[in-house]
């Protein structure tokens, strides 16, 4: 390889090394400075001057900033121009490996661009038995139904795996049934659905001023009782209520002794609370609350990203390039180098 010192031409190694250095330094800044916070946060944390500078240079959103992306584009151009130059010089076998390695880095970067432009992702929550139309989330014509959700535990009650059994009705009228768990997303024609979260929902009703308000809410949710006076009912599900201590901390994650904790709140003030068994009706300040049932909901991430295939292709080619560059018939030379 001839030394290429023609100032800062795209294919010069000087520029190449400079880019590697600048990208490394920028990325480390991006990892050390908290990302995606508000402008006020940086001013408070780093002082007025430094905080403003961080925001001005987009260091608060570094990996999406125009200059970081521009550096990536220049690196890609540099890699391309180096490789093209080397292809002209009719490289040997190792040289082809090296060129393949460099060009496949471009394939990965191209995949990243496709991911960024065409990738779509949405988070949805579905109660057991419920269906959700994904059209509104950017996946037209697909309807997702949660047939069942359960959790496997280790003997010490740490979670072992979360399972969502779902049915997916696709826009061509087919319906498939699958089980989704962590590390095992549903994959169907480019669509992927991931197990992301879960929680409890409770069902019941409140009779306020002679009027029944039914509820079907996630644990921790609030029900508006009276808009004018900002009166709300906060509902917390306790799967395994501790009779001895009477606190809202569940003894275990299993629904062994389920309770609904209801708290009447006005503004920020707690007015009165009550703990109900399943099927029980209780009264707080004249409001009659019935706790009729509970169930799981699952939190799923729905994703479609054509870039991933390109990225994986790039990965495979990088490995092939490395193998040709370093493994092929080169063992002897390395040994000579060492001795």
């Amino acid at each position: 390889m001839t030394k290429n010192n023609r100032g800062l031409s795209l294919s010069s190694m000087k520029l190449g090394l400079f880019l590697l250095l600048i990208l490394g330094v920028s990325a480390s800044l991006g990892s050390l400075i908290p990302q995606g916070q508000s402008g006020a946060f940086y001013k408070m944390y780093y002082g007025r001057l430094l905080g403003s500078l961080i925001v001005f240079l987009s260091l608060d959103n570094l990996f999406r900033s125009w200059w970081f992306i521009a550096l990536g584009i220049i690196l890609a151009a540099s890699i391309l121009s180096c490789s093209v130059q080397r292809i002209r010089k009719l490289p040997g076998r190792k040289g082809w490996g090296s060129i393949l390695l460099h060009l496949s880095i471009l394939v990965v970067l191209a995949g990243a661009v496709v991911s960024g432009v065409f990738g779509r992702s949405a988070y949805v929550e579905v109660g057991v038995g419920d269906s959700i139309d994904l059209t509104g989330k950017g996946f037209p014509g697909q309807v997702l139904t949660l047939k069942d959700f359960n959790i496997a535990y280790y003997p010490n009650l740490e979670p072992k795996q979360y399972y969502s059994k779902v049915a997916l009705k696709t826009n061509d009228g087919r319906e498939i049934e699958r089980e989704i768990s962590v590390n095992h997303p549903l994959k169907f024609k480019g669509l992927k659905i991931y197990q992301t979260s879960y929680g409890w929902m409770t069902r019941g009703r409140v009779i306020a001023d002679g009027e029944a308000i039914p509820f079907d809410l996630e644990s921790g949710g609030e029900l508006a009782i009276d808009q004018n006076s900002n009166l709300r009912l906060k509902l917390i599900f306790v799967p395994d209520f501790d009779e001895k201590t009477g606190t809202l901390r569940s003894k275990s994650p299993l629904p062994r002794n389920p309770r609904l904790a209801c708290a009447l709140i006005q503004g920020h003030n707690l007015i009165e609370g009550k703990i109900l068994r399943e099927g029980e009706t209780g009264e707080i300040k004249g409001y009659r609350i019935t706790f009729s049932g509970y169930r799981y909901y699952t939190g799923l991430t729905v994703k479609k990203d054509p870039g991933v295939t390109i990225v994986y292709l790039g990965f495979a080619l990088i490995l092939l390039g490395l193998a040709v560059r370093y493994l092929a018939p080169d063992k002897k030379r390395l040994r000579d180098e060492v001795n």
Partner: peptide, 12 residues
């Protein structure tokens, strides 16, 4: 990508 649905996320 298999566990969170993103192959790169600039996690530290």
């Amino acid at each position: 990508e298999e566990v969170w649905g993103r192959w790169w996320g600039w996690d530290p």
